[in-house]
């Protein structure tokens, strides 16, 4: 590869490119991670103790997580809720993506894509706050439902996980719609027609033809949404009730309120492992390689 690059760009240019690449990879990506991992295996010491007899590698930080019932529960609840967010987002996005990719006219695609993207021109915090207003006890959603007679007393959307789930599905819809759209768009419409011609109904056409074809897109979307959800801070912080704390909030607390970076690093590292594990599991379930996800 270096030979090809040299042939194309000449020696000096190749060197610059490679140096920049390595700088990015080592200094900006690898090194910070390694420092955090290093932190996570050390006790939280005041500066004068650094290098002293207590400055040794230990599993203590990880043991805290394992031993702390509340933190452990929140960890597993974060996994579960993130999976739930991922599935909900998939369910909401699939029909939209299918419509855009197979049924919509060019004009409709433009319009809907624009409508999907416009909210992202606004800061995530503001977007989430707007949901806080919409979902609040005396907010417009309750007023609407009351007015239309669907409910006789307002619902507390923001207590429990409901608000967080809605906020996250909303926040990550694009990350699901676009990979799905890409995957479904490449499906030859004649396949759908052929299945229909052979007698298949709507559900079977999707189950046997469209979804298998869209698998790489579904996997990519699920991985993205799961990681964003598991690592989200703003949505649970704003829309969550005291009972629906997210693991990221605990990590935040260790860093900025507890002042214990070592503990925070250990917690963050566990979350990273979890995400990598999730990617591996999804790739296994969908039987796809890393290359398919990039598509």
């Amino acid at each position: 590869m270096i030979k090809q690059l040299t042939a194309r760009f000449g020696g000096p240019m190749t060197l610059v490119v490679l140096l920049l690449l390595w700088f990015w990879l080592i200094v900006l990506v690898l090194l910070p991670q390694l420092i955090m991992i290093d932190y996570s295996f050390k006790p939280n010491l005041i500066p004068s103790q650094l290098g002293g007899p207590e400055d040794v590698y230990t599993l203590g930080n990880y043991q805290t997580l394992v031993g702390n019932d509340i933190h452990r529960t929140i960890f597993f609840k974060t996994i579960w809720s993130s999976i739930l967010v991922t599935l909900l987002t998939l369910m909401v996005s699939y029909p939209v993506a299918y419509f855009l990719a197979q049924l919509a006219t060019a004009k409709q695609v433009m319009l809907i894509a624009l409508l999907l993207v416009i909210p992202y021109w606004i800061n995530e915090i503001l977007r989430t706050f707007s949901w806080y207003l919409i979902l609040s006890f005396q907010g417009p959603l309750n007023a609407l439902l009351l007015g239309m007679g669907f409910i006789d007393r307002p619902i507390r959307f923001l207590s429990g996980d409901g608000g967080v789930l809605i906020g996250m599905v909303y926040a990550y819809i694009l990350f699901m719609v676009f990979p799905l759209y890409n995957a479904i768009e490449s499906l030859d419409n004649n396949q759908v027609r052929a299945a229909r011609n052979l007698g298949a109904g709507l559900i079977r056409i999707h189950w046997r033809i469209v979804i298998p074809h869209a698998k790489p897109g579904i996997a990519t979307g699920c991985i993205m949404v799961f990681m964003l959800a598991a690592g989200s801070y703003a949505v649970p912080a704003l829309l969550g009730s005291p009972g629906s704390r997210w693991f990221t909030q605990i990590i935040y607390n260790w860093f900025f309120e507890g002042g214990n970076w070592n503990m925070g690093a250990a917690y963050a590292f566990v979350l990273l492992i979890l995400c990598i594990g999730f990617i591996a599991a999804i790739m296994k379930v969908f039987r796809i390689g890393l290359g398919d996800i990039g598509k």
Partner: peptide, 15 residues
């Protein structure tokens, strides 16, 4: 999907 017809497509459209 309920007609007694069956089609062979120009590009075959095999699955």
């Amino acid at each position: 999907n309920k007609r007694p017809t069956s089609m062979i497509f120009q590009n075959l459209a095999l699955f």
